[in-house]
Amino acid sequence: MKKIAIVVLMSVGMLASTQAKETKKMKRTADQYTFELSDQVTREKVHFTNRYGITLTGDLYLPKNHGNEKLPALAISGPYGAVKEQASGLYANQFAQRGFAVVAFDPSYTGESGGEPRNVASPDINTEDFSAAIDFLGTQAFVDREKVGIMGICGFGGMGLNAAAVDKRVKAVAVASMYDMSRVTARGYFDSMTAVQRSEMLEQLAQQRWKDAENGKPAYGQAGLPEPEQLTGNEPEFVQGYVNYYKTDRGFHPRSINSNGSWTATNALSFMNMPLMTYINEISPRPILIIAGENAHSRYFSEDAYAAANEPKELMIIPGAVHTDLYDKVDVIPFDKLEAFFNENLK
């Protein structure tokens, strides 16, 4: 099983792409977004620092003419390997239209946020990123710090649930197309990784550390998602979904790792023995809303998280939807439900 590490990384969309090839094909620049800003909303770039001293960059979305009344607020991030100009910004734009103050942020080591080396993920640091966003929101004069929640998408659904468990300031949390990155990395899809395969993967990662130490810098992944024109239709649904989002004008962004970059070759180490869902039951009595597509390959993460959580909780399955539908399809994402959930529970 010499390729087990590569197989696992491929399965969760943690693939490199060839920058020169992609930038020729895609027209979007680093300053552009994958969605149109509502004329009812303002957007401002903001910066804040997490507990580890890393400066994060986000976009603050506010309803226009919100007056002097303090607003309920949300911190949003995800999907895993994405940036604020993609799905998290789209969600923030929608929530701001509905009266929320929202910060959509790039996680540490990603996008416009700080941290070296680039393109590293961590269940601890990325959980902290949510709390740092809440620090920022709660110190704004226009925010009611008693009405702050989290919205996590894809892999940042798992981070968001973990943040809600540890940070009692979070009054409610919702996730869409949730991934448990620690589980899928450490155990494979549907927990199919054997003990032998896990051991071999850890051995590969350990050997890569020697190489990185000798070179004085981290190596980055080399495999890549197929080009859209290379898809045959026989690939797994999630591969087609990721390509159709990250590698086309629909969702491509130059700073997105999944669109135009790669994770470090040892990135998986962070998740191998740090299970994110350990304390999900401690979110209670604060409410959880978990949303997943009926046909999403990731649906089982949502169902298992729901089973592990204590009440109050709700699992909403969107008929016919796949994983990436909940990234940007505003006619599929249940924004009215999300609005009602946060309005009811941010109090």
Rank of each mutant, 00 (worst) to 15 (best):
Q208E: 15
Q207Y: 11
V175T: 15
R187F: 06
M178G: 00
V196F: 15
Q204C: 06
Y179H: 06
S192T: 14
V170G: 00
V170C: 00
K171D: 01
S177T: 11
T185R: 00
S192N: 15
V170Y: 00
R198Y: 12
M201N: 04
Q207D: 14
V184T: 09
V166Y: 05
G188N: 04
M181Y: 06
M201T: 04
W210L: 12
D167P: 06
K211I: 13
V170A: 01
R187G: 09
Y189V: 06
E203V: 12
K168G: 04
M193Q: 13
R187D: 08
A174F: 06
R209N: 07
Y179L: 07
S177W: 04
Q197R: 09
T185V: 09
K168Y: 13
T194Y: 08
T194R: 09
M193I: 05
S182C: 05
E200L: 15
S182N: 07
L202S: 09
Q207W: 09
T185E: 04
V175F: 04
K171L: 01
E200M: 14
R169W: 04
R183D: 05
S199D: 13
Y189H: 14
V170M: 01
R169F: 08
R209A: 14
E200T: 13
S199R: 12
Q204T: 11
K171A: 10
A174I: 02
A174H: 01
Q207P: 03
W210S: 11
K171T: 00
R198N: 13
D167H: 02
V170R: 01
R169I: 04
Q197W: 07
W210I: 13
Q208L: 11
Q208I: 13
G188F: 06
V170L: 02
V196G: 12
D167V: 00
T185C: 07
S192V: 14
A172I: 03
R183A: 11
K168W: 08
F190D: 13
V166K: 03
R198C: 14
A174L: 04
D167A: 01
K171I: 01
E200I: 12
L202M: 15
R169K: 07
Q208F: 12
E203F: 13
T185I: 15
K168T: 10
V175G: 02
A195K: 15
M181N: 01
A172Y: 01
A186I: 07
K168R: 14
M193F: 10
Q204I: 11
Y189Q: 08
D180C: 05
W210F: 15
V175N: 02
M193R: 12
G188Q: 05
D180N: 15
M178V: 10
E200S: 07
